[in-house]
Write a protein that binds this DNA or RNA. Structure first.
Ligand SMILES: [Mn+2]
Ligand SMILES: [Mn+2]
Ligand SMILES: [Zn+2]
Ligand SMILES: [Zn+2]
Lengths: 156, 156
DNA sequence: CGCAAAATGCAAATATGTTGCAAAAAGAAT
DNA sequence: ATTCTTTTTGCAACATATTTGCATTTTGCG
């Protein structure tokens, strides 16, 4: 083993799995993902590393130190998705929401919970739902996503 | 028992369950849902009854005989949602997709499958996934939704 | 440093959904 | 059927979210 221990998570990349540590320094992650290390990418990745819930373009941009064009934010996120660093997740709002592709199990990320009262979205990182079992022949599952609506502890 | 047998399905309506038969004639359904029977509503409901997958506003409109304004289509769908006849479902595309609120189990509808190759979305009406069990104290589940991505039988 | 490829900013375009208001249609009462 | 009230509809404008084309800048590499 070389270097300090890092938490290893599984990331799904276009058809196969790789092991990757998304809690390393943003710069390192970019290099090992084969992405050019630009200021914007480093910052966006850092925002996502600190995020406690899926964020949309506007929320990400608001947390940046530098001014990045919104087009650039979208393009950066798309490059992260292609590299397998980021997922789009499944929330009630119209805007796409993005999240680091960590805290994932094989073929699925954790579920997301949206409160119908206060409208907050929470990551249920420790909640586990098995993969569907009785799917008909011929289907190949690449990813399963779960979304739950209801009342959060604050509102119930 | 009065009248011919109808398939009874469960529909989730704002906090409690009702039994309703969504394969009756569209006109009847509107009446029993307390909605005015307008030409547009009848047609939209019929389109949804025949649909084999979730449809968006544009797809619904394209299947109508009469010309309906897109605002009207959206408002009609919203009234169906309020009446518990229709759900919005979650697909990969940006546009909202709508589906009759049948083939549902308590607190959840069937999963939807989107093929990453041909981009088609299919209803997995007979696929069952249990409700999450290990959700922390304080959360109240009102609805669980599942989305699966992968290769469909045509593409695998 | 100098080059080629990739990333960025900006303006415009596109896609999707909502709002306000006036006109039309539906249902109830007569 | 006629009248009345309420709901629904169409239309234009607005709002929001995302994408595209193209010129400019930056990056990584030799
Ligand atoms: Mn999450
Ligand atoms: Mn369906
Ligand atoms: Zn809440
Ligand atoms: Zn397919």
């Amino acid at each position: 083993m070389d270097g300090p221990p890092v938490k290893i998570v599984s990331i799904y990349i276009t058809g196969f799995y790789v092991k990757k540590a998304l809690n390393r320094a943003a710069k390192e992650i970019l290099v090992s993902a084969g992405l050019r290390r630009t200021g914007g990418r480093v910052e966006i990745l850092e925002v996502l590393q600190q995020a406690k819930m899926p964020l949309n373009q506007e929320e990400i941009q608001a947390q940046l130190d530098r001014d990045l064009n919104r087009t650039t934010v979208y393009r950066t996120l798309e490059s992260f998705i292609q590299a397998g660093l980021v997922h789009r997740c499944f929330v009630r709002e119209r805007a796409w929401h993005y999240e680091l592709a960590h805290n994932c199990r094989p073929l699925q990320c954790h579920p997301h919970f949206t409160c119908t009262n206060c409208d907050r979205t929470l990551c249920l990182k420790d909640v586990f739902l098995p993969l569907v079992k009785d799917i008909p022949d011929g289907f190949i599952i690449q990813r399963q996503q779960v979304r739950i609506e209801g009342l959060c502890p604050n509102c119930s």
